[in-house]
Write a protein that binds this DNA or RNA. Sequence first.
DNA 1: TTGTATGCGTTATCAC
DNA 2: GTGATAACGCATACAA
Lengths: 363, 363
Amino acid sequence: LADRKQTKGRTTLADVAKDCGFSVSTVSIVLNEAPLSRSISAATKARVREAAARMGYRPDAFARSLRSRRSQQIGIMVFDIADPFCTLILRGIHTALRSTDYLPIIMDAHNDAEQFERYLGMLLERRIEGLIVVANWMFVDIKRLAAIEQEKIPSVIVGQQMRSSAMSSIMVDNETGGYLALKHLHQLGHREIAVIRGPKELPDSKKRWAGIVRYAAEAGLKLRRSWVFDLPGASDPTAGFYEGRRITTELLGQAQGCTAILAFDDLTALGAISALHLAGRQVPEDCSVIGFDDVPNASLSTPTLTTVRQPMEQMGVTAAERLLAEMESLPNSKPLPAKHWLTAPNVVARDSTRRIPISAKKH
Amino acid sequence: LADRKQTKGRTTLADVAKDCGFSVSTVSIVLNEAPLSRSISAATKARVREAAARMGYRPDAFARSLRSRRSQQIGIMVFDIADPFCTLILRGIHTALRSTDYLPIIMDAHNDAEQFERYLGMLLERRIEGLIVVANWMFVDIKRLAAIEQEKIPSVIVGQQMRSSAMSSIMVDNETGGYLALKHLHQLGHREIAVIRGPKELPDSKKRWAGIVRYAAEAGLKLRRSWVFDLPGASDPTAGFYEGRRITTELLGQAQGCTAILAFDDLTALGAISALHLAGRQVPEDCSVIGFDDVPNASLSTPTLTTVRQPMEQMGVTAAERLLAEMESLPNSKPLPAKHWLTAPNVVARDSTRRIPISAKKH
DNA sequence: TTGTATGCGTTATCAC
DNA sequence: GTGATAACGCATACAA
């Protein structure tokens, strides 16, 4: 009894049963408040509960899951846990899952395909009932998710679109984001605008650029080809800062009349500000800068950064809620069709952009 | 067979056995490469493996763990997953665990004691074999960890000292950090220095201040009592930014000759820079600012931030390695005594501090 | 060289 | 009202 606990290390249902003098089934029924427990005497219940509490009984999740065929676990695969983008989405997912009994198991693939596969395998062995993939700007190969689709595990990807797959997805409307960014600058009076686009490999880059081009056309604004730059591809999120700085320095050498820079994301924008500062140009007095994402950094920088905001926490909540819905629909054998969301971004105007004085206008 | 897979959803060892015509035990032995597999014919092995692969067999972690009494899981309790401090430690832990077969289960307590307890309970039910608690500046109650100690689960806490407990701990040497911060400013010629201390409730605050006082005494430097401020306690890490800004604004009103600010942490320092900027003071030309931690933000700000660096990633690695060592020693019934590490911080000199021109010296 | 039987801790179905 | 028993999927001691 007592010494059994010491030697075996763990208090089991049988231990509790032996201690309080009832059978394992009775104890189980009482502790789980199973339907049958209605017909068990209050005295018995009290004795069982007292014994369990005194002995520090804790149900074994393995045995329970093996029996019930339910793991109560949801896998969350993150591409870079050091990336604030992922981190805020995680926050949202957590919030949505808090009220449920599911345990979110977070895995950090660290932008490494091999790690991704390995962790995915481990999650599958642990019989996760659902999966959320949080993709930052890193490329996700659909093939990597084949195992998931095959196992028919409900899953949602956030931060990237996968129309070809049966997986639901949720991401920001990049096209609108690009549109809004340029519109913001234009409405402040800027006409001489440089653009730092994202890496060519990234779908996001194309979308944001398309939005920029659309606004330019609508507003009759001409963008100079030589003032449009591309970020090189990279696997490190902070690389954007240094590239943004490098490109801006280059830009300052050739572009005299430039009054504003539209950066691919916040880190790039921060890099641009750094370069402007080094070159003795004030932000926003001499040049406005707008970013994209609204990572926590953005509101803590000097000057605070104007940016196109992705509602990341909300996206996390939506992803988790969708996943729960898909999981719920599964046993009813009415699998929900994949749904693809595009969330609306919005401009957060802070101190890095300002209305251009009329005298400085060229156009 | 095939339809069984469809109806039941999962391929089991029995399915594979039936398919290839051998018994469950043979299949198990082959797939696990158990000792006995040495005496199994190559032909059998091949047929077994082929069947398993073809049917997409995956061992059930629940059944396996139930039987082997080993969960292969390590719990990682983080106090705020959105805090870069925690995030970098996580990165280190992951790195150290990558080469093992343990699955790290990350839980975000979100600075909420109730969440902490709930998740701890879930981890315990899942029979984690070890636990790492990543504490940022939030207060950890020892009582909360009572369950862990009682269950005799090897565990390590990083970011906070718990000498009273049997848990190993690893944290930065705050006293030395405070000492180095002031030394850095002093050696650059600063004599009129304001200090923004951390919240009073935080042990870190006292330690860092003690180091500052020790250096001041050694160098014969006098710190004005009225130039020493305290951050209020708060549960949100970004609060430091706004408090740092508020306090600095207040300081600028009263402290005319101040040439440097020693901030409690990086976010506070960033807030101070913001306030200086708003007041039209240049950093570092008019006032130097030094932070503490070296979060990723620090090197991406304008100007880049001089700070006292905590080797967070390395601390994560050390914590994980220590945990593995304690876990290994457990079955040998030679429990390792708790060990308490103090890692050395170092000053990273960037652009927010500069040598004071001789003409400006007062003292 | 391979098969049979048992138990890990739970829950659920039945019997008393 | 309560207790015996079977089964979840796997690993292993033992039998053949």
